[in-house]
Simulated scan of single mutants.
Amino acid sequence: MEILAFGVQSDERPLIQRAFAGHHDVRCLDVFLTEDTAPIAAGHEIISTSVNCGLGHRVLQTLAAGGTQMIAQRSTGFNNIDLDVAERLGMTAARVSYYSPYSVAEFAWTLGMAVNRRIVRAATRTRDFDFRLDGLMGRDMHGRTVGVVGTGKIGEAFTRIAHGFGMGLLGWDVAENPACLELGMEYVSKERLLAESDLITLHVPLMPETQHLVDAAALRAMKDDAILVNSSRGGLIDTAALVDQLREGRFTGVGLDVYEAEAGLFFLDKSMEAVEDDTLARLVTFPNVLVTSHQAYYTVDAVGQIIDTTLGNVLDYTAGRRSENVLVPRS
């Protein structure tokens, strides 16, 4: 059976082909699954998608009409898939429930430190042989307070890093993580976490309850010199409200690996095109903001685990088995 994989990065291609060898043929496409590209999947019972592929009702209907019955998503998040429509169409959908939490946690910490110590500005200056230190002053993280919003596997990994730097630990989640408690984390209300934290990092999934979790009121509640990091999902932050606060000169730094309107932008080369997204265009102009293109997960370790799990989901489907990764079961 040939499996069609959408949105495959060049670094991923050999890993996918190596993993699937001896099991199924796989054809890797660098284009993302959209309404325009969905007809390409005709005749393929199984397709694989990335988190920035859009699987709304029109795409799913096109896929079903072409004979696709199984969607193997190469990510933990699945807010890009209309699961209700998939179920009505009798399609199976599966995701990757778990991969290395260290990849995202380490990158989130890197974003925080990069904006704190003005690394990008410093590197740009030295390329021009400008070695002044004006405007590059950061601050020690030791002794300051981190607020971890979401203390699952990734939040726990981040907490361990912050603990190693000697930071005070505040956490907010629907359930307390015993491992974080052992590290000395104090679980508090969201309001207190926002008000007292010097560094705030987001590690909760995007769902209706967390859409714009960090809204205008939450941003106003933060310290003027706080650092905000988001390596989870762009929709957790009201970006327009964030831009408003940045225009007022607030925050030491903001590190964003995700953006709420990133679909159709991230993972693509738009360098020769006019940017139509005014909010993003404004966001990247602030000197205390660092935006990266949803790369926190992108390590050989994490991507390897994602691909291995995706292969396992495909093999489970063809064998009629069901695992914890299944979002919509086989009808």
Rank of each mutant, 00 (worst) to 15 (best):
N116D: 15
I47C: 13
I3F: 06
R58H: 14
D244K: 14
A19N: 02
P39R: 12
E209G: 04
G150D: 03
D25N: 06
E248H: 10
N116F: 08
E45H: 07
V96T: 10
T299R: 03
V85A: 11
T318H: 01
D11Q: 11
A240G: 08
A105H: 07
T318P: 01
L242C: 04
R27M: 09
E87N: 05
R220A: 11
F158E: 15
A123F: 05
A41V: 02
I161K: 11
V289T: 02
Y297S: 09
G166F: 03
P205C: 12
G164H: 07
V243G: 04
D36P: 00
T126E: 03
H212Q: 10
Q211V: 07
D140P: 13
S50F: 11
N52R: 05
H294R: 06
T285N: 06
A195S: 14
D278T: 15
T49L: 05
L136M: 10
L133T: 10
V51Y: 11
L4W: 02
G54H: 08
R139H: 08
F129T: 14
V51E: 00
A281D: 15
N177M: 08
V115K: 00
L136R: 00
G312Q: 13
T62A: 15
A19H: 01
A240I: 11
L194N: 06
E45M: 02
T285S: 13
R95T: 04
L327H: 01
G90L: 12
A296V: 10
Q17F: 00
L236K: 03
Y98V: 13
S103A: 15
F20E: 03
E186Y: 00
S75I: 07
T124E: 15
L60T: 01
R125L: 07
D84R: 08
A240E: 15
A195P: 04
V148S: 11
L202P: 02
G22I: 14
S97K: 11
L246S: 03
L89H: 02
R88K: 15
A218D: 09
T252G: 04
T159V: 11
M272P: 02
Q211Y: 10
L111G: 01
S50V: 12
T34K: 13
E191N: 06
H294Y: 11
G168P: 01
A274V: 05
P208Q: 06
S331N: 02
A94V: 08
S189A: 14
T124A: 14
I306L: 02
V275S: 07
L256I: 00
G155Q: 09
P101T: 07
V149E: 13
F129E: 04
F267L: 10
Y259S: 05
I16H: 03
V148A: 08
